[in-house]
Structures are given as C-alpha cells and as structure tokens.
Design a protein around this nucleic acid. Structure first.
Lengths: 227, 227
DNA sequence: GGACTCAGTTAACAGTTGTGTGCTCAGCCG
DNA sequence: CGGCTGAGCACACAACTGTTAACTGAGTCC
C-alpha cells in the first residue's frame, strides 16, 4: 500500500482553510486516489472499477460520486498530480547545472529519485500515456506537450543553441522528453526485478543522452537541408 | 471494421494442409483476433471481455475456449502477429540502403506505410507495451528486445561502427527502436486527427534520426569515459 | 440553539461478466 | 457405410458491475 504523499505536495500547495469538514472530504478524496493508484499496479485504468476503488477505501460506492463524476475523471486528477511533481524536479535541475555532463548526470539521478519516491504515479503515467481512456490520454499528451515546450525554452537559453530555429529546438526537446519517459519506465521495471538493474539503466540512459548531446553540438554545422 | 490481413502473412506462412475442417477453425480464430483488434481501438486489453469478443464475431462465449485459454492468451497471439510484420519491413530496409540520408528516409516511410496498412496492430502494440496485462507486456518486451538485438547486429556491419563496443551498439539500437515505436504512435495519432499531421510527424522524425546519426558519427572520437 | 448543508449510508435496479455442463451435427477416416 | 472427433451451441450459475433514490447525522453558520 502506497502511503507516499502526492508528488506535487512537496513545496507549494498550502492547506486552503481546512474547515474540519472539507478536511475530511479531502482525506477521503486522497484515499480514493491512493487506492486507485495501488490497484493500477496490476491493471490499467480502463478496467478499473468504481466499486473496486470504494471497496479498497472502505466507503460505499455511492460516496465516489461526491468526489468524481467518473473513473476517467479520477484518472485526469491523477495525471495532474503525477506530472506536476516531475516537472518541478526536472526543470529546476536543467536550468542550473552548467556543463552537459553535469546536466545529464543530474537529470538521470533526478528521474531515478522520482521513480523511487512515487512509483505509482510514474507507472500510471507511462501506462496511460497510450492507454484506452481517451480523456486521460489527452490530458497526459497535453501535459507532456507543455513540458516539451518548457524544455525547449530552457534549451534556447544555452549558448550552444545559437542559430537554432524554434522548430528544431522543439524537436530536440521532444527527444529529451520521450527519453525521460522511457528512462522512467526502465527504472520502474528495474525496481521490480524485470529487465536490467537500476545501475545499468542509469548508465545506458546517460550514454544515450550523451550521444544526443553530441549530435546537438554538431547540428547547425551540418544540418539545414530537407523541407 | 478492419478486414486487413495479418501483418505476417505477406511473404511466408504457407497454408498448412487446410482440411476444410481446420480451415474453418482457422477462420473463426482470425475472426476472434480481428474482432478483438477492432474493439481494442477504444479500450485496453485488460478491460476487454471474452463475451464482448464472441458477441462481435457472432459465436457463443463457450466457443472462445476452443481457441484461447484467456483473453490474455489471445493478446499474446496478437503480439507475435503485430511484431513479425514490422520486423520484416524495417530489417529489410535497413540492411540495403547505403547513406544515412537514404536509410532515414526509407525507414520513416516504411513506418508510415506499416501504420497505414495495419493501424490496429500498431495501436495494440503501443498501447499494451506498458499495459496492465503482464503476459502481453512481457511478450512485447521480449520481442522488442530481440528486435533491438537485430538492429544492433545490422549496425555493427556498418563501416562507421568500427571501434564500437557491443554495449554501445546495443545502446544505440535501443534509441532507434524506441524512436520507431514513438514515431509509429505519432503517425497513428496523426491518422485520426489528434496532434500534428502526418507530413509534420515524418519531418520531425527524420530530423531526430538525423541528429542521432550525427551523434553517432562523433561518438568514438569523443566518448569513452564513465564506468 | 436551531436551521441548514452535505459527505457518506443503505437498498435496490437491470445488466453484465467468466466459466461449466451436456448436447448437436458437419466433417473425417477406416 | 458407420463410428468417431471436435467446433460450436444453448442454458444455467453465482458473482459482479455502474447508477439512482431516499435517508442519516455530524459539522457549520447566524
């Protein structure tokens, strides 16, 4: 049972005048979200039943409707939660470090930490990114899109990015974001004994990022054909 | 309703002495697989019901057991089908073309064609790669693993790969395989009006491959730190 | 302290699900 | 031809699903 707090709740999110009443409401809401996350370890959202969730929490099925319209609605709530955490971690890291080498090491380590701290949220994200529930899939897509835009913006401020078109920066950012998701997924598998161990995953991820970073350095001197 | 043949059935797969009896059996088996694929357009495997499939085909629920033990079992059958097709297409293309530019253009076009020809299979693959049904997830993982190994083997025969360790070749191959899956997924979204159009997806994919290819060319002259 | 709000309850609704048993009858084989 | 095999059928089973309705009672507000 995951009793870890929601990823976003680390720094911001002040308790909004909790009048014992809405405090209790918030607690069961959290319980529903957490129970859903636990159940989603072994299935995907489109097969997760409303009753299944309420049973795990210990409330009646009807109580669910006081918090969410749908299971899909709950899913969308989970998306926001899951990606807010990741964005904060990575963006802060990227902006500060100087050399490529440092940035790569830090980013990979940050991903590993995040996966260790919030495995449920990460699994949910990776699984439902292409999953069967349209609203959730769209929500994840939109969030990752926004994320890529931010990364592109950070990259634009590097000295190396001189002469890069916005389109190419965006393309590069998408490589990074996709790679991040894949790496997170690999860490997750490592954590539960499937596939290579965590150290090997980190090593491969670093090398891949280094190769991309190498391609980036030689891009403008070579590229610019193709329409 | 997809009435397209299975991806693998293009070149090999001779009809194994179809005695009208097992021919009919094979036909309903196909019907079950196709119906499942259609239904999976709007949901994921872990929520796909056995009765749902048989109802779509027009046979009784009990008939299902003559062909598959489980819905998960049917899923594994779909995995083999879906990846056999892709592997043949890509591997053939990669081995023949000479310059990077040609290979990239050809690979992206081959992916686009394959997605157009077998959207259901591709969607299934992308969706269930991280999906909630363990046997299917493992089957896809194993197949993609084998795929990456083959790509690494092809890459090893390039002149550019001199001095590359098997581990680094494998790392590079994984970039390519993951990128291929992501590209296929983007084409799929494009085909149904979500996200950028097909031409834009192809353009971005080509640029990304070009950047990776650039990193590859400068790898050995720069790399080889990190343990 | 009395009216009110509203998170959570109980009970019932009509469908649905996976699985088992025994049957039928077209196709195969000697 | 006659016997056998086995794909598909009809039917029944208990268990489960999402959703609605009316109700309860603790917390809030004036």
């Amino acid at each position: 049972m995951s009793t870890t707090p929601a990823p976003g709740s680390g720094s911001a999110a002040a308790p909004p005048a909790a009048s014992q009443r809405e405090a209790q409401k918030a607690r069961t809401r959290r319980a529903l979200l957490d129970a859903a996350l636990d159940l989603l370890e072994h299935q995907s959202l489109s097969s997760l039943g409303l009753r299944e969730i309420t049973r795990a929490v210990g409330v009646s099925p009807a109580a669910f409707y006081r918090h969410f319209r749908d299971v899909a609605d709950l899913g969308v709530a989970l998306v926001d939660e899951a990606l807010d955490g990741l964005r904060i971690v990575i963006r802060a890291g990227l902006a500060e470090r100087s050399t490529d080498e440092e940035r790569i090491d830090h980013a990979v380590e940050a991903i590993a930490d995040h996966v260790r701290a919030h495995p449920g949220h990460v699994r949910f994200l990776v699984r439902e990114r292409h999953g069967g529930v349209a609203p959730v899939r769209r929500a994840i897509g939109a969030q990752l899109d926004r994320f890529a835009e931010e990364v592109a913006h950070v990259l634009a401020q590097d000295a190396e990015s001189e002469g890069w078109s916005p389109e190419d920066l965006r393309m590069l950012a998408e490589i990074y974001v996709d790679h991040m998701v894949m790496t997170a997924s690999s860490f997750l598998q490592a954590a539960q004994g499937e596939g290579p161990e965590e150290a090997a995953v980190a090593r491969t991820a670093r090398r891949q990022l280094r190769l991309v970073s190498l391609g980036r350095r030689h891009w403008t001197t070579a590229g610019e054909r193709d329409g």
